[in-house]
């Protein structure tokens, strides 16, 4: 007891003496603010969603429950929105990750110096465009020119067993579909993943590249066998960041996904994501239960985001320790 007291006193004296006390207080305060905010938000969505949780129980989030979203009858079931979030984010990731890694490798390893500046600038610009602009551009340019033809081309896959479920047509002529949302998300998360991965690659010590090259590795082999494995935890972090962005993206998705509470698994149909259903209906919620149901979706989104962050953390720490 005594010893702890002394050490505390010593530490405090240290902070005061070295003029660090302000710095230390600031850091502690901001850390506390962050923690309090997270807890507070979690608590709020938990409390506000009570009515919905009591009314529907686990069936609310179950993939096997009968889908329903009918404010007039006060019947709510969230699975289509959860599915919509997961499938759009997943498709976006599958398409964006290889592309983003290609861009990152090009920017950090291959591009001639004169090209790097402009390209980096463009990638950063892409990340800075407000999402409502992506939404508008999506509606007027991307959906009719890209999404509709791609959707039509995918329709024949609807005949396949099992995965055919994903490709049930017909694609609406407007292009408002889950596919449309996924493809817009690709463009939105691409710069994030690319820029973070590029930074990860650039942070790899030159000695690693030299070691590979000195053993007769080509540039390509160096990237593939040394740099990507070396940077894997950082790159994984970038991917999870992208996933988080995709699953949380609201405006652009709401503008292009068609906002339909319909069930089914087809990506060629309009749908909802968790974020878009909240954005779309919250202001016009017709009953307390409706509001509460939207809050519960918020809760699910909150939990998924937390889990995702925890996963990212765990993966990064785990792999880093293994390596060290």
């Amino acid at each position: 007891m005594n010893a702890t007291q002394t050490s505390w006193r010593r530490r405090l004296t240290y902070y005061f003496k070295h003029g660090d006390v302000l710095w230390w207080a600031l850091i502690t305060l901001s850390a506390l603010v962050a923690v309090v905010l997270v807890l507070w938000i979690g608590w709020q969505v938990w409390v506000q969603s009570a009515e919905s949780r009591h009314a529907f129980g686990w069936a609310f989030v179950s993939p096997w429950a009968k889908p329903a979203w009918n404010p007039a009858l006060d019947k709510f079931q969230a699975w289509p929105a959860i599915y919509g979030s997961l499938i759009t984010a997943l498709i976006a990731l599958i398409l964006a990750v290889p592309l983003a890694l290609g861009i990152a490798v090009f920017l950090s390893e291959l591009a001639p110096p004169w090209l790097r500046g402009p390209l980096n600038y463009m990638v950063e610009m892409l990340a800075a465009i407000p999402s409502v602009v992506y939404g508008l551009w999506g509606i007027y340019v991307f959906l009719p020119l890209v999404v509709v033809p791609v959707g039509k081309a995918l329709e024949p896959l609807g005949g396949l067993p099992v995965v055919g479920e994903l490709f049930q047509g017909p694609t609406p002529a407007s292009g408002f579909t889950r596919l449309g949302a996924a493809l817009v998300l690709v463009i939105m998360i691409l710069p994030t993943i690319a820029a973070v991965s590029r930074d990860v690659l650039q942070a790899i010590p030159r000695s690693q590249r030299e070691a590979a090259m000195a053993l007769g590795a080509t540039r390509w082999e160096t990237v593939w066998k040394v740099l990507l494995p070396y940077g894997q935890s950082g790159i994984l972090g970038a991917v999870i960041l992208g996933f988080g962005r995709a699953i949380g993206e609201t405006m652009a998705v709401t503008m292009v996904i068609g906002n339909s509470a319909g069930g089914g698994y087809s990506i060629l149909k309009p749908g909802y994501t968790m974020a878009s259903i909240i954005a779309n209906e919250f202001a016009e919620a017709v009953s307390d239960l409706h509001t509460s149901a939207l809050m519960e979706i918020g809760l699910v989104l909150f939990v998924i985001t937390l889990l995702l962050n925890a996963l990212a953390r765990w993966l990064v720490v785990n792999r880093t320790i293994k390596r060290a």
Partner: peptide, 9 residues
């Protein structure tokens, strides 16, 4: 090299 630079493998 001057600094040992094994791969993280």
């Amino acid at each position: 090299f001057q600094r040992p630079n094994p791969f993280p493998m």
